[in-house]
Write a protein that binds this DNA or RNA. Structure first.
Length: 596
RNA sequence: GGUCUGGUAGCUCAGCUGGAUAGAGCAUCAGCCUUCUAAGCUGAGGGUCAUUGGUUCGAAUCCAAUCCAGAUCACCA
């Protein structure tokens, strides 16, 4: 149990004993004591003043007295300032915590809870390479999956690949017209980039043709519809739907190139999936659900035989679920897939990592699932994240203002190499070790940069800032870890692995205690991150812990501690910190180096 | 126009289930490497928490209105 929960519980017990009535944890608040005051945690009980008809100071005195008297193993002193009750937690408590956990690499994590969650993330299109926005998505999805695992959930990571439709045909048609048989092998271009080039080519040609038609007197709408390349693309989509062999062949070949390219990217950034769904397999799903919805009178048919659901009573609009020609639409596929996921994996919760431009869509999806009475429809969760903007404005793939995922990852790794070489601390590393280190630091910087911000907020990607390795960054945390490991290597022989009392020290110094206090919060932080589906909670915490440790490090010496007892104590503080930093960074998908 | 987000230091962001003098990082300035890795530490300056009103012992935080920015409201996906 965390110290905050202990304090909560003992406060409730004390209040009940003192005032002979029952209390709950909403009757008061517990905060960390501000640094300018004496104490570790503060009880705020202004809300009790009215019902108890006592002054805050009076309640504080009685409560403080009662707590220190009845729970001396936890609380040793108190003071009251302006009605706030500041309590000092016993040094023995902190030391006991340290003794029990300093060597536990699972510290803060929870046992399996028997619940299963699916996290769907990445969701790429097969007509262009991954960009910065995908990276935010992928890092978020991966991290949330890890955070849920740390909270005892079984997690299935899934990916839905958008591999069909008019936009896919665009790159296909452009390749057919202008490709001259180019392949990744013949050009040396990564498969997804090669296909992306033809997607851009399509848009160039299309734009040109539209302009020509307009100059010949067509209005814009007609021109956009009549442009030859667009008509060819539409024909190709029809051919694809008919299963025309040469179109299928081309489709499979080009998608194959893209998948090979994606695999390289996933591999380099450390993303993986337990299950991949392809939209070409799922786009016909949901048909029988439409029928069920009709039977249940959740859906209704219009005279042109298209099928709809009326969500106006829920503050939304009417939504089509089946076209008049009987084909299904996007949302229908999603309903079908949602059900399939549940049936295949018996999941308790389904998390979708999807950009916030689909908030409306996801709201509608969940609402329809609920109205259809689908199991666990209430446990559909849209992890909505904001767009990544550039300092120069928004990214637009058609205008070529996107930051390519492979490019930015490579740039970060190169930058980490430059920094490392300038510092010259690892000259004895082998070539393989160096490569691994540059990857660890470069990717660490990148992931930390994208994950340290609240997912739901639109964020600005500032290139100069993203490659900064100082301050609130991944490398800062990695560096702190490496520095601790350096101490531990040097002191390995003298560090005792006792669990006994000989390292007990009844007078913790401020800098020592501060590290333990922050370390103690790790379990609570992991819970909070899972509840909010928010990796930035972890990023902020890990930074805070590293910073607290760095102050400790610069103020006190471990190797040359005043006494042997102090030395052992500080070694344990260091090891505990290192374990938590490693564990927390792992929840963000970031590795930590033993040296850097 | 309806709905949903967001607006906190020059910049990027925490804090938002109401609590003490609103915090970090970057940038700027001033210090600290003959002692465990200076990718570090210590300090300084920098704020009308978009605006106005309300709720109350107390509001960056809750409520309302207004302003600004973004997203969305397809027989596209």
């Amino acid at each position: 149990m965390s110290i905050v929960k202990i304090l909560q519980k003992s406060t409730i017990e004390s209040l009940s004993a003192l005032y002979n009535q029952s209390f709950t944890d909403t009757d008061f608040q517990i905060n960390q004591t501000k640094p300018e005051f004496e104490g570790d945690y503060t009880v705020v009980m202004f809300s009790l003043v009215k019902s108890l008809k006592l002054s805050p100071d009076a309640i504080g005195n009685q409560l403080g007295e009662h707590l220190t008297k009845n729970y001396p193993q936890f609380f040793t002193a108190y003071n009251i300032i302006k009605g706030f009750l500041n309590l000092t937690v016993a040094d023995a408590y902190w030391q006991d915590l340290l003794q029990k956990n300093y060597n536990d690499i699972c510290y803060g994590k929870k046992a399996l809870n028997g619940k299963k969650v699916m996290v769907e993330y990445a969701s790429p299109n097969t007509n262009k390479p991954l960009h910065l926005g995908h990276l935010r998505n992928i890092f978020l999805g991966w991290s949330v999956a890890e955070i849920l695992k740390a909270n005892g959930y079984e997690v299935v990571k899934s990916c839905i690949v958008n591999d069909r439709g008019i936009h896919i045909c665009k790159s296909m048609i452009a390749w057919q017209m202008f490709g001259n048989g180019a392949t990744p092998e013949s050009t040396g271009v990564k498969g997804d980039h090669l296909v992306g080039e033809y997607y851009v080519k399509f848009n160039d040609v299309y734009k040109q043709q539209v302009e020509e038609l307009i100059s010949e007197g067509d209005d814009k709408a007609t021109a956009e519809k009549e442009a030859p390349i667009m008509k060819a693309t539409q024909q190709m989509l029809l051919d694809w739907e008919d299963g025309k062999p040469e179109v299928m062949e081309l489709w499979k070949t080009m998608n194959g190139w893209v998948y090979a390219g994606f695999d390289v990217t996933y591999n380099s950034i450390g993303a993986d999936f337990d299950k991949t769904y392809y939209e070409s397999n799922t786009y016909l799903l949901g048909k029988d659900i439409v029928q069920q919805g009709m039977d249940k009178k959740v859906f209704y048919q219009k005279p042109d035989s298209s099928i709809w659901i009326d969500l106006t009573a829920d503050g939304l609009d009417e939504k089509i679920v089946q076209r008049s020609d009987g084909t299904s639409v996007y949302i229908t596929q999603d309903i079908g897939l949602a059900l399939q996921k549940y049936e295949q994996y018996k999941i308790d919760q389904s998390i979708y990592v999807i950009g916030n431009e689909q908030n409306y869509h996801m709201k509608v999806l969940q609402l329809i699932c609920q109205k259809l009475g689908m199991p666990n429809a209430d446990n559909i969760y849209h992890l909505s994240y904001g767009m990544v903007e550039l300092t120069s404005g928004k990214m637009k793939s058609r205008e070529g203002t996107v930051v390519d995922a492979d490019d930015i990852v490579e740039e970060m790794i190169t930058t980490s190499q430059q920094h490392t070489e300038e510092l010259g601390k690892v000259k004895d590393f082998t070539a393989e070790e160096l490569t691994a280190l540059y990857n660890t630091i470069g990717l660490g910087a990148m992931k930390f940069y994208l994950l340290r911000v609240d997912p739901k907020k639109t964020m600005v990607f500032n290139p100069a800032e993203s490659i900064d390795f100082h301050g609130f960054t991944g490398p800062f945390v990695q560096y702190t870890y490496a520095r601790i490991k350096s101490i531990l290597r040097k002191q390995a022989e003298v560090m005792t692995t006792d669990n006994g009392q000989q390292t007990m020290d009844n007078d913790l110094l401020k800098a020592e205690k501060e590290v333990i206090v922050v370390a103690e919060q790790y379990g609570t932080i992991i819970e909070q991150a899972a509840q909010e589906h928010n990796p930035s909670v972890i990023a902020n915490y890990v930074f805070n812990l590293a910073k607290t440790f760095n102050s400790f490090y610069s103020e006190l010496s471990v190797a040359n501690a005043e006494t042997e007892v102090k030395k052992q104590l500080r070694l344990k503080i260091s090891l505990l910190t290192a374990n938590i930093l490693k564990s927390g960074m792992q929840l963000l998908g970031i590795k930590v180096p033993e040296r850097m």
